[in-house]
Amino acid sequence: MASIARCLRAARPALKVPVSRVCSARAFSATTTCNDPPTDALRKYTKEHEWIDLSADLKTGVIGISEYAAKALGDVVFVELPEEGKRVQAGDAIGAVESVKSAADINAPVSCKITAVNMLLEEKPATINQVPEDDSHGGGWIAKVSVDEQGVKDLDKLMDEKAYEEFTATEEEH
């Protein structure tokens, strides 16, 4: 994701609800609820507002854009999905989201290989606005990936949910 959260101020509705209170943000773990944050949560966020969920064995993951970014972008009218089978480095543009005349890059949070893409977004791009942090069937996740050692190392540079929440709160103040 591009650094949209700050730059699209004009299009952004007031966002006062912290990301962590949004149920869909936790959809990746069946055992967790909104009131009970996952203890095995390997969801991390980038400063550019992508998230990645990593499996417990650190081999596979799911990528998407954050609730905060989805709100900032406004109505998503098209999602350019990543290319299946492609290997990318952390920070590489893997796809794009179009909303309100803006094409915003989606970047790889870590080095990875794209193993599957969410075809639902081709038909229903607005899913990104509704459940951007849902990595289940019907959710707004963007791609599934496999991760190697480098990818796991890249994870260290990302923020956990709490840090990301604080980060977006600072962006709000600008």
């Binding site: 591009a2 949209i4 730059c7 920070g91 543009a93 309100v100 005349k101």
Partner: peptide, 11 residues
């Protein structure tokens, strides 16, 4: 008319 392109570092 306007259009936008947003990348990781630039708008």
């Amino acid at each position: 008319g306007s259009a936008y392109k947003l990348t990781r570092l630039r708008a």
